[in-house]
Amino acid sequence: MSAERATGASGVADRVIDVALMAISFAMLTPLAFLVSNAFKTPAELLAWPPTLIPDAPTLDNLRAVIRETPLFRWIFNTIAFATLSTAAIVTTSAVAGYVLAKFRLPGFGLIFGTILATAIIPFEVYMIPLYLGVQAAGLLNTLWGLLIAYLVMSFGIFLIRQYAMTSIPDELIEAARVDGAGEWWIFLRVALPLMRGPLGALGVLAFFQAWTAFAWPLVVAAKTEAQVIEVGLALFQTGFTVELGRLSAAAAVALVPSVVFFAVMRRNFVRGVAASGMKE
């Protein structure tokens, strides 16, 4: 069955929608267009006013300087490794906990869910100090484990999966499987997970980018430059007084490339939705 529903609505309406979405998409991208454009500007042109969207005298100096003077690719590699592991951990923990909390009603589960959600409310920076002291006591500073430890679970991830599981996995389906003698793990892995493919893909994207943009924690836990992640690496271009805007933009633009590629690849995973997941009437 085609993902496109043949509604019989006129093509005109679709064209109007396309124009509107196109305009909004471009509006969303405008600040980023400036960012990419800044990456190719000379220091003089960066100061020029009004700012130009297309550089008058495009230069590769910023890019070259960034690649020559900083371990940019090393940072990107570190970040990909860190983000991949964090994503795997978060998707696993969220899938399990989200499913259980959505589909099993046991006394205390409401409290557990409420507590998990409440932990998301406190900004990470606030409880970073005790967590840091814990990681330090465990001797995990400057290790991947130390970095990862704050990113093994995601309150919003459990919440997200729970919310989807409530509607996307019909209770009758689980019940029928039990009647057929299926074990609970089997039901979780073979019935629930396939139905949650879209949400899990979306969660994967969110978890990946949460790690990708992590800053406060890697800064203090992985304090060594070559062990750093991209977001902290980018911060090295700033000082209290001046910003190396050209280089900062060049580095940020390079870092955007894997982000966009990753999103495009992952997107294919979760756009199919229920129609493609094998569940039909």
């Binding site: 800064l219 203090v220 304090a223 060594k224 430059t225 070559e226 902290v232 911060a235 090295l236 700033q238 000082t239 209290g240």
Partner: peptide, 14 residues
């Protein structure tokens, strides 16, 4: 010697 420089505000934090 590894020289690790970051914005002053973050430097104070670390």
């Amino acid at each position: 010697i590894s020289v690790e420089v970051i914005a002053l505000r973050e430097h104070e934090k670390r």
